[in-house]
Amino acid sequence: MSKKISLADWQQQLAGSAATEHSMANQPAKTAQADLVYSTAGGRIKAEQSESLQGERYADGALRIKRETKGRGGKTVLTITGLTGTTAELTTLCTELKKKCACGGAVKDGVIEIQADKREFVAELLQQKGYKVKQAGG
């Protein structure tokens, strides 16, 4: 984890490293951007995050489609678990399912949530895409 410093300290380090860059032209320069916490030009600086895989695959390789209503104000939501992939891949699949079902949905912690009670239809769509599907729960 990098040490957080103020903008004034960062600028001072940057000015100091610029002076030493001329004397050490053959050595790679250390980027001070990693230590920057806040800038008046852009606000809070967030570190770049790499795309990581989300979701957990089941041992049998099948996706689980589960109907849930608990904790959702009585509304029915389908959750699709067992998918692995990057956030972008899961979001793309979720968007396609939402368009086909004409409903809302989201990707949360590697789980696709579809705001409709169309389990058979969603299972059929996923099977057409080549996934092995199991219906779980009630």
Rank of each mutant, 00 (worst) to 15 (best):
S2A: 14
I5W: 05
I5K: 05
S6D: 11
A8M: 12
W10E: 05
A15Q: 15
G16L: 13
A18P: 00
A18W: 04
A19D: 08
E21H: 12
E21G: 13
H22E: 10
S23E: 08
A25P: 09
N26W: 08
K30Q: 11
A32Y: 13
Q33E: 13
Q33A: 13
Q33W: 13
D35W: 09
L36V: 06
L36P: 03
Y38L: 15
Y38R: 14
T40H: 12
G43A: 11
I45D: 01
I45S: 02
I45P: 00
A47G: 06
Q49T: 14
L53C: 05
L53E: 10
E56P: 06
E56I: 11
A59F: 03
A59V: 05
A59M: 04
G61K: 10
L63H: 04
L63C: 08
I65W: 02
I65F: 01
I65A: 00
R72Q: 09
G74Y: 01
G74C: 01
T76V: 12
T76D: 04
T76M: 07
T79W: 03
L83F: 11
L83M: 12
A88Q: 12
A88S: 06
A88C: 00
E89I: 04
L90R: 00
T91L: 10
T95H: 07
L97Q: 01
K98G: 02
K99W: 05
K100N: 06
A102R: 13
C103H: 00
G104M: 11
G105L: 00
A106L: 10
A106I: 08
A106M: 12
K108S: 06
D109A: 12
D109Y: 08
G110M: 04
E113K: 15
Q115F: 13
A116V: 12
D117W: 09
K118H: 14
K118V: 15
K118E: 14
R119S: 14
R119W: 06
R119M: 12
R119L: 13
E120I: 08
F121E: 14
F121T: 13
V122C: 00
E124G: 15
L126C: 04
Q128G: 07
Q128E: 09
K129T: 07
K129S: 07
G130M: 11
Y131M: 10
K132S: 06
V133R: 00
V133W: 01
K134I: 08
K134F: 11
Q135A: 12
A136N: 09
G137H: 07
G138R: 10
